[in-house]
Write a protein that binds this DNA or RNA. Sequence first.
DNA 1: ACCTGAACACCGTTCAAGT
DNA 2: ACCTGAACACCGTTCAAGT
Lengths: 217, 217
Amino acid sequence: MTKARNALNRAAYVAAALDVIGEVGVDKLSMRNVANRLNVSPMAMYKHFPTKDDLLAASLEEFISRANVVPDAGLPWEQWVGRVARGMYEALCGELSWVPLLGSLRVGSQAIAVTEAFVGKLCAAGFSVEQALRAYFAVIQVVVGAVCLRASLAARTGPRPGSLDAVVPPSGPGSARREKMKAVSGELEVFLRRDQIEIGLPLVIDALRAQLKETRI
Amino acid sequence: MTKARNALNRAAYVAAALDVIGEVGVDKLSMRNVANRLNVSPMAMYKHFPTKDDLLAASLEEFISRANVVPDAGLPWEQWVGRVARGMYEALCGELSWVPLLGSLRVGSQAIAVTEAFVGKLCAAGFSVEQALRAYFAVIQVVVGAVCLRASLAARTGPRPGSLDAVVPPSGPGSARREKMKAVSGELEVFLRRDQIEIGLPLVIDALRAQLKETRI
DNA sequence: ACCTGAACACCGTTCAAGT
DNA sequence: ACCTGAACACCGTTCAAGT
């Protein structure tokens, strides 16, 4: 049964790819080092993955599946949504090297399974399908954006990428403004180091709560 | 004055890099093709940009600067914030190839100039510095996330990356659920094609408006 | 039918050698 | 001091040649 053998090999390649990614990061993954890990010719992979991007997409699928972000039912929707979002955020923060291609890979069935669970949960809570989908994409946007900001923080080497003070225009009399900007500069670092997901997510959940209340009236 | 010559060359390299990016995309940019465009040895660039990432970071700076997203003052803060966010979104959608490295490049002074303007505007509207910074990062998260989703939509070749129906579990008696999921599947495409920024941004602005009202009481 | 090694056309970066 | 060409160690992918 060649189908079964193919399926096994595919999974083996993806598992090996995830191993490589865990060791050297997504950016350093290559067809060659995955094949070497399996003691096989790099060309053998092209039967299962016509392109490196196909291998990466399959690996991201498996990564999403392993992250297991969908929580138990039974939680109130706010907490349920929070758990999904924080679960995704933490999983991606654990493998920041995914970030550069979060926007360029195809979404597959694993990602859609999460969508389905999300929409189901929110519909059960009283949202319309349209509202639930809108909420889902808003949450995904915040998660992806938060991970990107977190990653670009991690990429910075020195403590200051450029000082806010250097940018404040030399406004003649505006000394109050200058003082406020000094406060901004001071707090900027603090904000960058904070858990990014706790910045955007509460705002979105608040807005959703208000939306639901308005719908029910 | 070597300083001036260096500055000129730096700008010339960045301009050439942006030309190349405009033609073939960020992913296809290389030290070699930028140098070729300027009829110079690829090695000459290493004096100004010790690494390809330095060239990319400088190019992103210039890209941000050219996008010119900070609108005129005088707009009410909601509209002002909306203009900044939509401006960023549209600029990045116009050059989607930036997306893969949105999370991996250092932020420079141009980005900080936008931060400063944003915080200044919201403080003038009555937000605290802390609230304004929080709002800024939330908006950036939504913009980046929206661009990522938009990009991953653009990356899809076929119309269906995987059908929702294929994922719905064969729940025995739950026929109402199945029907709802069919509706989800139908609307998913519509949502993916919609302007992503109009999904997350209104939610965030709503939450900010509520926050401001509460503060003022 | 399947797998492979060599080869192609790239890449970022190093470094000794030119001027 | 500055710039350069050749070279190193990679890369994704093609393809003719093996079994």
